[in-house]
Design a protein around this nucleic acid. Sequence first.
DNA 1: GCAAAGATAATAGTAATACTTTCAATTGTG
DNA 2: CACAATTGAAAGTATTACTATTATCTTTGC
Lengths: 221, 221
Amino acid sequence: MILNQIIIAVNDKLYVKNPESSDLGRKIIQHSILLIDEIGFDAFTFKKLGERIGSNESSLYRYFENKHKLLLYLSSWYWGWMEYRLVLETNNIPDPKIKLLKGIEILTEKVKDDSATLHINEALLNNIIILEFTKTILTKEVDRENREGFFMVYKRVINRLVNLILEAKPDYPFAKSLASSIIEGSLHQHFLKDHLTTITDCNDTQSPAIFYKNLIEQILK
Amino acid sequence: MILNQIIIAVNDKLYVKNPESSDLGRKIIQHSILLIDEIGFDAFTFKKLGERIGSNESSLYRYFENKHKLLLYLSSWYWGWMEYRLVLETNNIPDPKIKLLKGIEILTEKVKDDSATLHINEALLNNIIILEFTKTILTKEVDRENREGFFMVYKRVINRLVNLILEAKPDYPFAKSLASSIIEGSLHQHFLKDHLTTITDCNDTQSPAIFYKNLIEQILK
DNA sequence: GCAAAGATAATAGTAATACTTTCAATTGTG
DNA sequence: CACAATTGAAAGTATTACTATTATCTTTGC
């Protein structure tokens, strides 16, 4: 066992009051994941979440300005957690090729719940990220929000993958595009395997991780 | 010159009344592209569009049930037009490798306005597709809408690319995932090069098409 | 040339959303 | 125990995404 309690730091501009600082805050995080996974982010409202946790709509606004910021918070937490796992599990691998393949596996494989975080169900959070994360970037406000640092953790994860690629193949000229393609693309392949099965080779036995590891092997040749 | 007027057929479940059948309908298409590009799809409403074209909100509802269906219509039109160009420009190439590279170029290169369609500005429509298309798929309604055939043209384009890949490399085991990755990924790279420049190698001189053509060359080896 | 049909416009109305505000009740802390 | 901070309840607002009704305008068929 590594740690029995993880704390992931999130950009403090994303919340009004830190949800990790109180019971109600942690309840908001825990049940927002359950509720968004259940009904989708579009149908999700603070009113419904309030009813679910026996709390008032106006109290939730004391933690998050709006539901968009809450989603950005959950996303930042998710990528922070992925970064933590990526660093931890690739740290002591000396061979750059094996290290890169391990990194790809962590970043593209289906996520399982992590018992070290009591109020966060990572498997459900992963479902939310697959369906909603790309939408948080594809907005007219992306430049302003990027300047405020809302996507910093995500970009840091991608740049860690860039470094793994360059360690394994220093002369590869498209490391950034490849890294961002793999990370965004794997979310997309996970979605396709559940909903648009005719345009993917991925399924229950053949995961996106296998496709991307094969792709990397071709490129390393 | 190939044709001086193109008509792209779109699934008739996407509209209440065919917008190609009247002046007002064509105006809706033309100005919805301009307005969505300008203010984004979220801020776009039928009321604003009505004001812009000097028409009443309620009249627009006679053509499209809601703005989501209008976006699906524009998307279907776009992919229909891409398919038309793909088929036309790869048709007479005998060498499968050159044919595949040409196909990739058409599907991933920046789009220019096509003078054969008077009321549709393809360059602006391409901007809308980059920002909004993935969101039309990433919904809780995707299975029902897929069953209704709303994504048929898109899936057909991907399967045409699958065939080009398999003609060039018949034993490649991930043709579908690669094709869907390239098409979705190139939209994503176009977005990154304009907004999150630190996680892409693409820019004004190095287009996504160059990255993807290089990737395919690696895979064909 | 006119009547009927069809298309479009004007106006009003509704339910839901995404908040904000105010004030009261409860809880925690020095 | 008092004071501050937190939470809850209720009401209010502007906007959105429509629907419904009725009026007007434009075709087209005869």
